[in-house]
């Protein structure tokens, strides 16, 4: 009898194939469409700030698939710009946090000693502070609607998560017999990094990154919604939702457009995560 059958019999979960499940394919396709919209839209569509008060709350038509808002601005164009803003800012925040958190996490796990102690102390304090709080505080210091403060706030909040996860995993991996054996075989740090740490960290980082994108995008729009983030007339998903809310009865498409994009973005990003391996 093969070992595969045995492990199945003993009730052990077999590692799921790293293939593209149908739900991941759908999520990937959806995200691709949204990205294409965000990249191509702003290039071909009208100026999102061009007002035309004569066309106040114009309903959707062929020329304007999503109609016009209370200033007579093109909603589809504003939506494209808002989507691009969300994706770009989210990606930049996640990338910064990922690089910073992973580097410090591996450093702390490997070097140990006081470096580890200092970094861990800092992360202990940061992890208890809700992300939104830090972003709120940081965004309070800048002139209204500064992208830079939003970026700094979001990245500052998120590096901790990467740091904590990477440090914990790295310490675990570095303590395994496999790494001990690599040391006895004199294989060097590059081998440990490439063969032991990276394969172990890659799926976790991918999951964290897609979650981080969601966090960034939602935090951005939430701040816009409570009016302390980016300021009008910038096209931003949360702001657009707030601005459209008074007209939900007269012009439901106005609120529906940013809300659906937001929902689709988060749903696709969440759906794209690799299934966490059991354990």
């Amino acid at each position: 009898m093969s070992t595969a059958v045995m492990s199945e019999l003993s009730g052990a979960t077999v590692e799921p194939a790293r293939s593209w499940t149908p739900s991941r394919v759908v999520a990937g396709a959806g995200l691709a469409v949204l990205v294409a919209f965000a990249v191509v839209g702003p290039l071909v569509l009208a100026d999102p700030h061009a007002q035309d008060l004569a066309r106040f709350l114009e309903p959707p038509s062929l020329a304007e698939p999503l109609g016009r808002d209370d200033y007579g601005r093109s909603v589809v164009s504003r939506l494209a710009h808002a989507t691009r803003l969300s994706l770009v800012l989210g990606a930049v925040c996640v990338l910064t946090a990922l690089v910073l958190g992973t580097a410090t996490g591996i450093l702390a796990g490997w070097v140990g000693g006081w470096v580890d102690a200092v970094l861990r102390g800092l992360s202990e304090a940061f992890v208890a502070i809700p992300a939104l709080l830090v972003v709120l505080l940081v965004s309070a210091m800048a002139p209204e609607g500064s992208l830079l403060t939003l970026y700094v706030g979001l990245a500052l909040v998120q590096w901790v998560e990467y740091f904590r996860v990477v440090r914990a995993r790295a310490a675990l991996v570095l303590g395994t017999p496999a790494v001990e054996a690599a040391g006895l075989l004199r294989l060097g740090r590059w081998h440990v990094l490439r063969r032991h740490l990276w394969p172990e960290l890659r799926p976790v980082l991918l999951t964290l990154a897609s979650l981080g994108m969601v966090t960034s995008i939602l935090a951005m729009s939430t701040l816009g919604f409570v009016k302390v983030g980016l300021q009008p007339p910038r096209a931003e998903l949360g702001l657009m939702t707030t601005e459209a809310f008074p007209f939900y009865d007269a012009a439901p498409w106005l609120a529906l457009a940013p809300v659906s994009v937001l929902f689709l973005l988060t749903a696709c990003l969440l759906g794209l995560r690799p299934k966490e391996v059991a354990r």
Binding site: A125, F126, A128, I129, V134, L137, M141, A142, P143
Partner: peptide, 21 residues
């Protein structure tokens, strides 16, 4: 951890005050 949190928050607030637009 509570002390650490208090220090980080107050330090952040301090920076905020200094940089008030």
């Amino acid at each position: 951890q509570g002390v650490g949190v208090a220090l980080v928050v107050s330090a952040l607030c301090f920076v905020v005050v200094r940089a008030l637009p």
